[in-house]
Amino acid sequence: MNIFRLAGDMTHLMSVLVLLLKIHTIKSCAGKSYPCSLCFILLESSSGISLKTQELYALVFATRYLDIFTDFISVYNTIMKLIFLGSSFSIVWYIRRHKIVRRSYDKDQDTFRHFFLVLPCLLLALIINEKFTFKEVLWTFSLYLEAVAILPQLILLQRTRNIDNLTGQYVFLLGAYRALYILNWIYRYFTEPHYVHWITWISGLVQTLLYADFFYYYFSSLKNNVKLKLPA
């Protein structure tokens, strides 16, 4: 474990916590008998969260952590896997099933057909992988899928008029975690012999590059202290 990877995992954990906080806010808001002003805004505007991206991430974790009970690496590793699995599936459940949270989900805007991402990633994983075994192909599939999983969310943000802070921070942290992982891979490449994993590195690089324009608008909105807005 190195500082870049730890920072990356903590950033990823933070993104999940921000999303859970947002869902909690929506839940507690609507619970009130009289909607406070913030609640009113929250309930009126869509949450800006893409259910499609959340479903893709649940699939990413389900296919990446197949070895959670067969290969024990460390307590930290197992706990983090359980957190990511548990949070991603519960977030999908909340947005799909929770009587209050689902109201803040704007399915008319979140129209990205994520099936068009799943199939090519699966085909690519069947062709380009490090070992043609069930677990390895699904693990590779999870890397390719994670690289593009953010697309429905980024497209939804372009369609969302006012992106609220928590949603912006969520996407930022999700992009930053993989950027930190790239530093981790560089560090491990120079410190560990034979540490070469092109598939992981290229997928991680593509994933981070997809956030490039978001990062640009996110930092300029911070610098100019204006509301985050993505051009359509």
Binding site: S74, M80, Y181, H194, H197
Partner: peptide
């Protein structure tokens, strides 16, 4: 082994 090392990341 090699396999083990590769999968130590989340």
């Amino acid at each position: 082994d090699e396999e083990q090392v590769m999968k130590d990341e989340l």
